[in-house]
């Protein structure tokens, strides 16, 4: 028997696809919260021998994974012709940002116990923390302008602003690479995927390049525009 699905309208995506995707993307953070609850209650938990270090690493990895996933939505949607996939991009990006916020909180609260002096020293002196904070600084305005209203208000500037996600992801990968000891391959895997995603966009922009000068000229005329 062939299972036939009704056509996937925007409404159906919002109603039937988004909730499970939300849940899926929330799972790592939910799991972490559960483990900390267990740990603080004195129960067996999955945080290992050094829970703070575990939390930093765990949240950082998932933030990076969701960030890369958010960047992959566009190319995949276009490549497979699944335009409906684009409706999921914002929520992937927002869950990536949620993981970033928990990552930062894990460091500030659990690891450094709000010792602002030491945290400031880290930001200024420790390259990998400088890079991590820079990535956060770039992602913050993107999260704040993720609403439809902000999108409308900013118009074309919104698209340009949200390209900051590319340097932010690159900074996050550098942050990771600077953190590990010795020649470890894991950061390079993320670097490779990210390079591919950036490369794809670069090719796409070049394909559209013939139209670009005109667009720029129009922008450049500023007040003279209709």
């Amino acid at each position: 028997m062939v299972l036939s699905l009704p056509p996937l309208t925007n409404r159906r995506v919002d109603r039937w696809v988004k909730p499970p995707v939300h849940l899926l993307l929330a799972l790592p953070l939910l799991w972490l919260g559960l483990q900390w609850t267990l740990a603080l209650a004195g129960e067996p938990h999955g945080l290992g021998i050094n829970p703070q270090q575990f939390s930093n690493r765990f949240t950082g990895l998932w933030a990076l994974r969701w960030l890369v996933l958010a960047l992959a939505v566009g190319p995949v949607a276009r490549g497979l012709g699944w335009s409906k996939l684009m409706r999921l991009r914002r929520l992937v990006g927002l869950w990536a940002f949620a993981a970033v916020v928990v990552h930062l909180s894990s460091y500030v609260a659990l690891d450094m116990l709000f010792e602002w002096r030491a945290i400031w020293d880290d930001i200024v002196k420790r390259t990998y923390i400088t890079f991590g904070m820079a990535a956060f600084a770039l992602l913050l305005p993107l999260a704040l302008t993720s609403t439809r209203a902000a999108q409308r208000r900013l118009g074309r500037a919104w698209t340009r602003l949200h390209r900051l996600v590319l340097p932010a992801a690159a900074l996050a990968v550098v942050h990771f690479a600077f953190l590990v000891k010795g020649n470890q391959t894991e950061p390079w895997i993320y670097a490779g995927i990210l390079a591919a995603l950036i490369g794809y966009r670069a090719l796409e922009w070049r394909r559209r390049a013939p139209r670009a000068p005109r667009a720029r000229r129009r922008l450049g005329t500023g007040g003279a525009a209709p």
């Binding site: 270090q53 116990l113 030491a118 880290d122 420790r126």
Partner: peptide, 15 residues
């Protein structure tokens, strides 16, 4: 890449 001024004794919460 990081400070050596403090340490976490495994089993303790703070540094």
């Amino acid at each position: 890449r990081w400070s050596q001024a403090r340490e976490r004794r495994i089993g303790e919460f703070g540094r």
